[in-house]
Nucleic acid binder design. Sequence first.
DNA 1: TGGTATTTTGATAATGGTTATCATTACCAA
DNA 2: TTGGTAATGATAACCATTATCAAAATACCA
Lengths: 141, 141
Amino acid sequence: MGNTACFTKYLADRGLKSTRQRELISATFMAINDHTSAEELYLRVAKEEPDVGLATVYRTLKLLCSAGLAREHRFGNSSSRYEPLSIKQHHDHLICTKCGYVEEFEHPKIEKLQDEIAASLGFEVMTHKLELYGLCRKCQP
Amino acid sequence: MGNTACFTKYLADRGLKSTRQRELISATFMAINDHTSAEELYLRVAKEEPDVGLATVYRTLKLLCSAGLAREHRFGNSSSRYEPLSIKQHHDHLICTKCGYVEEFEHPKIEKLQDEIAASLGFEVMTHKLELYGLCRKCQP
DNA sequence: TGGTATTTTGATAATGGTTATCATTACCAA
DNA sequence: TTGGTAATGATAACCATTATCAAAATACCA
């Protein structure tokens, strides 16, 4: 099942309505395949359908997060950015503190270690965020 | 060297002035030994010295972070919280998504893995944030 | 010690991302 | 189609944080 269909099903399953705006915002978001701010997404959507409101973009992004189709990040102290979670599995981020470049990575061994540590402290982990801040190859002296 | 002395030295080293407010805010902060918001710290400080302004608390917290004596966190989407970094070494956090309880942990093996992964991607890591979200022992069904 | 340049402070206005409000519109099951 | 409910758009409100600026405090030097 594609992501768009997945979102439509999510809406139907909870008695939420499938609207033109939600479909458009969700489709536009999924097509970006990068970390996006609500504002950026709003501008893209507005090109196609100028009457869509910023509030609806925020509302739809929240829905996409609840549906497990998006994830919200706040790298450093900047404003929220969202990324589509499509088929990709969970992954973490390397953030260059100089140029802002973001690279994704994924490492099962770390995930396993995390679960072990949490269990030893009596926690049951649902999700996690791992962010490594430093200098990317280009920004190194 | 104690943390207060350390902060005073940090100020002196950069030609910044050591003021009554900075000393009081810094001392109050160090004594808390927990994750604190700017507002909370402001209230505590105000008990002792009612004329200290909130802006100065924010300014001093920023200074403490630059001095390496504090660290800023934004767990989930809540407002910033700060923690004293005193003698404790770097550590990570387990956050209970139900009751908000925060537990610290530290694990050298994870740190080592992180550095290896980053290096393999050409990154030079300066700092990192690892947050595990889930249910603490008390909140588990 | 007193004078002075400079920094810091406190009060408050401004900022900016995000959310709440509410009248209007769109959806969808019957 | 209709009726009931949910969603939308415009915009006001929110609220944590930052900027502004006149007044006060500090550090340095003679």
